[in-house]
């Protein structure tokens, strides 16, 4: 095989950028699964909802897709709080998280996907923005802005949430809630309220992740499913509960996927994350970077 160095370097660099985007997609699950121990497998479906919000804002109102998602952040936050409330009353309190709680999120995933099909059909949709198209050229490396912007948005999300979690009272309580709920109550904090807020935040990240998703690639309602394996592979590989590990895992996966599609063809890329997930689960389930 003719492996040129340029091709390799470009594949690695754009893999890094892709990995940054994967961090944006995964951070919501890093919160819900990693910190709250709630296995929200419907997260990718809500990311896709974010993509369509960005699409509507962009196509019908001419707004920048990221701005459209930012405007809708409060709505996603509220939706997340509502979903958590239902989950808490119907499953957490009955201690029925595994069978029916998981099926609940699976049902939400399906309902959301079918609703999008009903509303928008199965055609691919995309957005317009000045940074979609041009690239930043640095010597032999080409950095397409449509990857660079999502990367920057993702890093802003990671840093912003990390600061919130470590510096605010609510943030610290979110970190504590999975460790010991009774102890948290003894700090005068209601675990249900803290989880509701955290779950709302996790949903809010889906709005932004959706906007960057539709910047990177055109979307149709079923592509959310491809991201389930990816997201959970990243979260498990990164070791649950740490953003740092999650970002490193996301970038690793981005690079491996990019090399795979450069040298074997893009149709093989979705299989990479499953391989990574299975190997991690089989070899070191606490994650490569877990505590």
């Amino acid at each position: 095989m003719d492996v040129s160095l340029d091709l390799l370097i470009n594949a690695i660099v754009s893999g890094l950028l892709l990995g940054g985007f994967y961090a944006a997609v995964s951070i919501g699950v890093a919160i819900s699964f990693g910190m709250l121990d709630i296995v929200n497998i419907a997260h990718p479906a809500f990311i896709l909802l974010g993509s369509y919000v960005a699409y509507i804002g962009n196509t019908y109102f001419g707004i920048d897709p990221i701005l459209a998602a930012v405007i809708l952040l409060p709505a996603f936050y509220a939706l997340g709080m509502a979903v958590y409330q239902v989950y808490h009353v119907a499953f957490e309190r009955r201690d029925d998280q595994s069978l029916r709680g998981l099926s609940f999120f699976f049902g939400l995933l399906f309902i959301s996907e079918v609703s999008l099909v009903l509303a928008f059909g199965v055609d691919y949709r995309s957005v317009q923005a000045p940074y979609i198209g041009p690239s930043l050229d640095l010597l032999v490396i080409q950095l397409p802005w449509r990857l660079l912007v999502p990367f920057l948005v993702a890093m802003a999300m990671v840093v912003g949430l990390q600061i919130f979690l470590s510096r605010s009272f609510i943030g610290r309580a979110i970190q504590a809630v999975a460790q010991d709920q009774l102890a948290l109550r003894l700090m005068a904090a209601s675990p249900v309220r803290i989880k509701r807020i955290a779950f709302g935040l996790s949903f809010a990240t889906a709005a932004l992740a959706g906007a960057v998703l539709i910047i990177i690639q055109p979307v149709e309602p079923s592509i959310g499913r491809e991201y389930i394996g990816r997201i959970f592979a990243i979260c498990v590989l990164g070791g649950l509960g740490s953003f740092g590990g999650m970002v490193i895992a996301a970038m690793t996966l981005g690079i491996v996927e990019n090399l795979t599609s450069t040298f074997f063809g893009p149709s093989w890329a979705p299989a990479v994350s499953f391989g990574v997930l299975l190997i991690t689960l089989a070899v070191r389930p606490s994650g490569i970077l877990g505590r």
């Binding site: 296995v39 497998i41 595994s98 998981l102 499913r225 491809e226 389930i228 394996g229 959970f232 592979a233 498990v236 149709s267 093989w268 979705p270 299989a271 994350s273 499953f274 391989g275 997930l277 299975l278 689960l281 089989a282 389930p285």
Partner: peptide, 25 residues
């Protein structure tokens, strides 16, 4: 065999990903 030694959710997640990978193959 690969995932059932762990908590049940990992098996569920693995099966979700399995659907994607078999489709890819």
């Amino acid at each position: 065999y690969l995932t059932l030694r762990l908590r049940g959710v990992y098996f569920s997640i693995a099966t979700l990903a399995l659907a994607v990978v078999v489709q890819t193959l």
